[in-house]
Design a protein around this nucleic acid. Structure first.
Length: 467
RNA sequence: GGUGGGGUGGCGGAGCGGCUGAACGCGCCGGUCUUGAAAACCGGUAGACCCGUCAGGGUCUCGCGGGUUCGAAUCCCGCCCCCACCGCCA
């Protein structure tokens, strides 16, 4: 959520941000509602203050008169009762006024709140303006020794590569038929070495974040309340991407949702908390199963393990002080962790600066990392794919957008003891089985086997190859 | 799933119709004392929102929502959550 006060002070910044992110949210309607809301608030407060003054005056008098009434002779009772009645009426009249303002407020507030939840975080000034992913800008590429992703796989290795779909089929690493039988389209079963490799890459990435980078390992819920989805910024805009578990027995409003990323659980950890400045930054990592409905992606990437409803992901999040320089620094470092991981596995990749249209609602800035996958891209004359980069990681910088929704703050010396909304960032460490695509395709051999990358062998019982 | 007990400030814990945004204790911060520290003593210590250039003023919040009342942390109704024991169980 954006800061309503900031929007009040500089609406054009948010209008411009919404435009750049292709959002049609009505900023002027928000300003109008906000003005009206403050007017009502102020009126109600004045009436309420007056009411309280009267209460304090009349209250003790009523109490006194009530006592007198008990012992008063019959003839005096009527006069006392009339006096009490009069004292009661004054604040009672104001009560009506207060309630009227409150009803007006209750009528308009849901609309204002709903609109505020839709306002996107304005992109940073240095983010290139663009309509969608086609306008993203390549920052740099990295190639492992002895490999050049700007050339074809065949030129690099001397033979035509199989796609990952062919590799997993030929090596018996998956069983799509039975996956679909049980769970429908985009479902799969990892079998044998497929499952083992999947677990190996996850464990390798998880250990890398904990041991080499000092992140705090945690396990988090993957079934969460709606508040958690709203707080982390995935609702209401992305509601149709989440699996919805109805809890009809308990009435509406208590339904649960499957999380599409460990980010939800990691960021939800400190919802409604005020952290001590000295405990920042918080650096967390988790490995969790992620569920995505992939609504609107019908027919896209239907083959293989690229776009699926359920996968496992090692995720990293950082919660830090509200400081732009620190946010930027962490962003760079979190990307650096992934680069180090990919380099240790010797996989070619590139960094993409996402343009404004591709940032999503929450992000001020986002860098995607794409691994090179020989089995994707345009077909050559023989009808074989020529290879392409495809997204495997996404590093987001959100400033206070997410933490404001979560009501996650910190305080300390630098804030003068006052609570200030934290900044947050997140980045993929490794998502599998998608990650198996570049891994298998790059490490395949001419005889159809796949070499197990050296760093993973410890998690594969020392195996050096599959097949 | 059943039965019982609870939800008050950073924590513990009073309050059970007005004097209570909240006693008291702990913690934390500042000060006195001390060579320094501890102890002791003194003082301070919730959050949100609105108005105001500042100083300051006001409103709301004792799990959440509604009600009763001139007045609610305190009474009533609904909901949520937590704990204990029993049952079931990965």
């Amino acid at each position: 959520m954006i800061d309503l006060k900031a929007l009040r002070d500089d609406p054009e910044r948010y209008r411009d941000g919404a435009r750049k992110k292709n959002s049609t949210v009505d900023i002027d309607r928000i300003l109008m509602l906000d003005t009206e809301r403050r007017r009502l608030l102020s009126e109600r407060e004045n009436a309420r203050a007056e009411q309280r003054v009267l209460e304090k005056e009349a209250g003790p008098q009523i109490g006194k008169l009530m006592k007198e009434l008990k012992t008063a002779p019959g003839g005096a009772k009527a006069a006392l009762e009339a006096q009490i009645e009069e004292l009661r009426n004054k604040p009672a009249a104001l009560k009506e006024t207060v309630q009227e303002y409150e009803r007006s407020l209750q009528q308009m507030e849901p609309e204002l709140e709903a609109l505020l939840l839709e306002v996107p975080m304005p992109p940073d000034a240095d983010v290139p303006v663009g309509a969608g992913s086609e306008d993203n800008v390549e920052i740099r590429t990295w190639n492992p020794p002895g490999f050049d992703a700007s050339k074809s796989f065949e030129e690099n290795r001397g033979f035509s590569p199989k796609t990952h779909v062919e590799l997993i089929r030929d090596l018996g690493l998956t069983d799509f038929e039975r996956g679909v039988k049980m769970a429908g389209a985009r479902s799969y079963v990892l079998t044998g070495d497929g499952m083992r490799l999947h677990q190996a890459v996850l464990r390798y990435a998880f250990d890398f974040m904990v041991e080499a980078n000092g992140f705090t390992p945690v396990s988090v819920p993957v079934v969460v309340r709606e508040e958690c989805m709203v707080g982390t910024g995935f609702f209401p805009t992305g509601r149709d991407q989440a699996y919805h578990i109805e809890e009809s027995k308990r009435g509406s409003g208590h339904d649960l949702f499957l999380t599409g990323t460990g980010e939800v659980g990691l960021m939800g950890l400190h919802e409604d908390e005020i952290l001590d400045e000295e405990t920042l930054p918080r650096t967390y990592t988790t490995v969790s199963t992620c569920f995505r409905r992939e609504a609107g992606a019908a027919g896209k990437d239907t083959a293989g393990l690229f776009r699926i409803h359920q996968f496992d992901k090692v995720e990293q999040v950082v919660i830090c002080k509200a400081d732009e320089a620190e946010s930027r620094e962490w962003h760079t470092r979190m990307i650096g962790f992934v680069e180090a991981l990919l380099q240790s596995l010797e996989l070619p990749y590139r960094l993409l600066q996402c343009c404004t249209g591709d940032l999503g609602q929450k992000n001020a800035d986002m860098i995607d990392i794409e691994c090179w996958m020989p089995g994707r891209g345009e077909e050559n004359a023989k009808g074989r794919p020529t290879g392409a980069y495809a997204e495997t990681h996404s590093a987001s910088r959100l400033y206070d957008f997410q933490c404001r929704r979560l009501n996650l703050r910190y305080r300390g010396e630098s804030t003068g003891g006052k609570p200030v909304v934290c900044h947050s960032l997140n980045n993929t460490v490794l998502a599998s089985p998608r990650f198996l695509i570049p891994l298998l395709e790059i490490y395949q051999n001419e005889d159809g086997s796949v070499t197990v990358p050296a760093p993973l062998r410890g998690h594969m019982g020392g195996r050096e190859r599959i097949g």
